[in-house]
Amino acid sequence: MKKLFIILIILFSFVLSFSQRFLPPVKDSYLTSSFGEYRDTGDKPHFHLGIDFSSFSRIGYPVNAAADGYVYKIWLNHKVYGNTIFLYHPDYDLITVYAHLNSFKGILSEIANSVISEVGNTFAEVKFPEDEIRVSKGEEIAYSGKSGEAEVPHVHFEVRELRKSGNEEIEIVRDALEFVDYIEMRPRKLEALEIRSNNRTFKLLEDQITEIPFATLPKLEVKADEKIGNNTKIIPRKISLRVNDELVYEIEFDAIRADEMYSANTVFGYGSNIFTYWLKLYSSSFITPIKVNRWNEIAFTLKDRNPAELILEDIWGSVKVYKLVLVKEM
């Protein structure tokens, strides 16, 4: 009886955890882009701070609220986000963001049209009092589009958290896949394709050890991605480098400060674009995705030959390990 009671508690917790997750903004849709990807569109390179859901190449496809809450603000004519809704969810103390919209629904449509009649195509932000415009989980709030820098119709979705640091309010953008009730059913292939060192490029294979030459300090960059189905490519969630059995460098795309949006070149190397990701395994700067950077500690302890491992992980638990040897050039 006691064992049955424990099982029932576990099952209840499992069901509850999924019922508390956010709904995807587009019903029966699929993921087309992931959090943290490199974007070279717009004025300058930046991080992709959300996840994208297909609107099946349609403008005007219904967009739904992820959870109960109220409208926090809207953006009109933002150069990157286009027409955007921000919802605040008191039960989670989080904000969800819906971008590249073609139009809004109901009272928001009336307000947006009124503002646009005054400002035209210039950017405008409209903030709303707490609880003034309430929404329910799954409620239709807007329609998909390709406003802002979007090239094709889709829905860009974010989860944001406001944190206090002294008198300053910091906006942290989280990987929305952690919060959304979404199961990826398509086949996935996580892999590192190539690695660069001292302007030389080497192919990577799981079943062989790759020797990588370096001079004073290894400045490595790895080309990596995860292919999903036939037409989606996303970035690995975590990239780690171990040298001589020590964790030396690690990047994880779980959160990025909103004010770090235009710091993408700290993490991404030359040749990166919307389809290709060259990830730096070194940096002289610190931003949120860089979790570990110990090169300064170990630079003078490197030997002539240094066994290393490059480890890729995705958000669904897949792991790929590539064996390396970092060889000091004499």
Rank of each mutant, 00 (worst) to 15 (best):
E171S: 08
I172H: 15
V173S: 10
R174Y: 04
E178P: 11
F179Y: 09
F179H: 03
V180D: 02
Y182H: 06
I183S: 04
E184D: 08
E184G: 02
M185Q: 15
P187E: 05
P187S: 05
K189H: 04
L190M: 01
E191S: 02
E191A: 02
A192Q: 04
A192F: 01
L193C: 12
L193F: 14
I195N: 02
I195F: 00
R196E: 04
N198L: 08
N198Y: 07
N198P: 10
N198I: 03
N199M: 06
N199R: 14
N199S: 12
R200M: 07
F202H: 14
F202G: 15
K203T: 12
K203Y: 08
K203R: 09
K203C: 08
L204W: 07
Q208E: 08
Q208L: 13
T210E: 06
T210C: 05
E211M: 11
I212A: 05
I212S: 10
P213S: 06
P213F: 04
A215K: 15
A215Q: 15
A215P: 09
T216A: 09
T216I: 12
L217K: 12
L217T: 13
L217Q: 06
P218F: 08
K219L: 03
L220C: 06
L220Y: 08
E221V: 15
E221M: 11
V222D: 01
V222C: 05
V222F: 11
V222I: 02
A224R: 15
A224K: 02
E226F: 01
I228G: 07
G229W: 03
N230W: 11
N230S: 10
N231K: 14
T232R: 03
K233V: 05
I234K: 01
I234Y: 11
I234H: 08
I235A: 12
P236Q: 15
R237F: 10
R237A: 05
K238R: 13
L241Q: 08
R242A: 09
V243I: 11
V243C: 06
N244H: 11
N244R: 15
N244E: 07
D245S: 13
D245P: 12
E246I: 12
E246S: 09
L247T: 10
V248I: 00
V248W: 02
V248G: 04
Y249A: 05
E250M: 09
E250F: 05
I251R: 00
I251D: 00
E252H: 13
E252M: 12
F253K: 07
F253W: 03
F253Y: 07
F253T: 02
F253L: 03
D254R: 12
D254M: 08
I256L: 04
I256G: 10
I256K: 01
I256H: 00
A258P: 02
A258F: 05
E260Q: 06
E260D: 09
S263A: 07
A264P: 04
N265L: 09
V267P: 00
Y270E: 10
G271N: 07
S272H: 06
N273G: 02
I274M: 06
F275S: 15
T276F: 06
T276Y: 02
W278N: 14
L281N: 09
L281Q: 00
L281Y: 06
Y282Q: 08
Y282P: 14
S284I: 11
S285P: 15
F286K: 11
I287C: 13
T288H: 02
T288F: 06
P289V: 04
I290F: 04
N293A: 03
R294G: 01
R294Q: 04
W295Y: 03
N296R: 11
E297T: 14
I298G: 01
I298D: 00
A299F: 15
